[in-house]
């Protein structure tokens, strides 16, 4: 498969979709939400899929940035396009600071610590209403300003989200094949060995954390201005889990996996609005399926089967042809290895 061509086709589809969906405001809105989730998922994937840490405070960091962006635009009169980068850098710093105590932890312990941080953030959003308006939330958040002072709206807002999501995915694909990305993968595979091989594990985790916080933050700012309303529930642990599920269900540690997961899962809450209870049951079932049946996600499972078929074919070939008996056995594509599906 030609990764570059696939990436190009997907990017084109994402950028064209808003214009195709222009006639149906509801579907266009769901598309915009999917794009924001795609940005979030590709960020979460960098940490979960490539460094091997599950950050449940992801939504909390998005929330900090969203509230900061609203405060900067409303109270200081800044443009969205200035407030967002500033809020993103600020949220990344806060994210790294909050994450510092947990960065020496790994696996389950890191996740637990990030859950505590997320809970504290949710409480803070609720009980310090100066910037958040508490449980009532903030409404009528203005959209970003577009060309010539006209607020960004409709199809152009959707297209902007598609562009931001595309850039986010491409950036993550680029990061994972740099030396930094290779260090991330080594840390994910075995952090003790990575350290002995000369990789500064804590430092690289901090870098990963900063990058991921920026993804969370930028997504948070766009979410607030796109939906026009945020409350502590917009950025609670369920939001983090939803983004995590997009990554895990699609295929962590691959670039295409989170795209598949997000496109399938992110629209569900909106399309099943009438069936609130069913929606929660469904995500519960999916979490179980991902954990027990498909730990590598849809894309990981596809790659595994493909590798199996290749191995079987090679063996058959070797059996029929003694000269081929020494052929190198096919590499089983392990779930989550970088080879599996990184667009190149």
């Amino acid at each position: 498969m030609n990764g570059r061509r696939l990436a190009f086709a997907l990017a084109l589809a994402a950028l064209a979709a808003p214009f195709v969906l222009e006639g149906n405001r509801f579907l266009a809105f769901v598309f915009g939400i999917v794009m924001i989730n795609l940005l979030w998922a590709s960020g979460m994937n960098l940490l979960y899929g490539f460094v091997g840490l599950m950050p449940l405070m992801f939504a909390g960091i998005a929330g900090i940035a969203a509230y900061a962006m609203v405060a900067l635009t409303r109270e200081a009169g800044w443009s969205f396009w200035l407030a967002t980068p500033v809020a993103a850098v600020g949220a990344a710093l806060v994210g790294v600071l909050l994450g510092l105590p947990s960065l020496r932890l790994k696996g389950f312990y890191f996740t637990l610590c990030s859950l505590v941080i997320q809970t504290v953030l949710t409480l803070a959003f609720t009980f310090f209403p100066r910037f958040t308006n508490g449980d009532t939330g903030l409404n009528q958040i203005a959209p970003p300003d577009g060309w010539g002072g006209v607020p960004l709206a409709g199809v152009w807002f959707d297209a902007t989200l598609a562009l931001v999501a595309t850039l986010g995915v491409l950036l993550s694909a680029w990061i994972v094949q740099t030396r930094l990305g290779q260090r991330f993968i080594a840390i994910r595979e075995d952090d003790v060995l990575a350290e002995v091989m000369g990789i500064d594990v804590v430092r690289n985790r901090i870098i990963a954390f900063a990058i991921v916080s920026i993804y969370a933050a930028v997504g948070g700012c766009f979410y607030a201005s796109y939906v026009g309303f945020v409350s502590p529930r917009s950025f609670d642990v369920l939001t983090s889990l939803g983004i995590w599920l997009c990554v895990a269900f699609g295929g962590r540690g691959t670039i295409i996996g989170p795209i598949i997961g997000t496109v399938i899962l992110a629209p569900i809450p909106y399309l099943l609005q009438e069936l609130q209870a069913f929606k929660d049951v469904l995500s519960g079932v999916l979490i179980i399926v991902v954990t027990l049946v498909m730990p590598a996600g849809i894309y990981g499972e596809i790659m595994r089967r493909r590798a199996l078929r290749t191995a079987v074919a090679l063996r058959a070939q070797a059996a029929g042809d003694p000269a081929g008996a020494t052929a190198t056995p096919a590499v089983a594509a392990m779930p989550g290895t970088v080879d599996a599906g990184v667009a190149r």
């Binding site: 290779q182 993968i185 080594a186 595979e189 075995d190 060995l193 000369g198 290895t337």
Partner: peptide
């Protein structure tokens, strides 16, 4: 014994070269 078991031998070698 401790190698990056989920990566290919080639990728293990690349990881060792990351020290740069």
């Amino acid at each position: 014994v401790r190698v990056f078991g989920g990566l290919s031998v080639g990728k293990n070698i690349e990881a060792a070269m990351l020290l740069g």
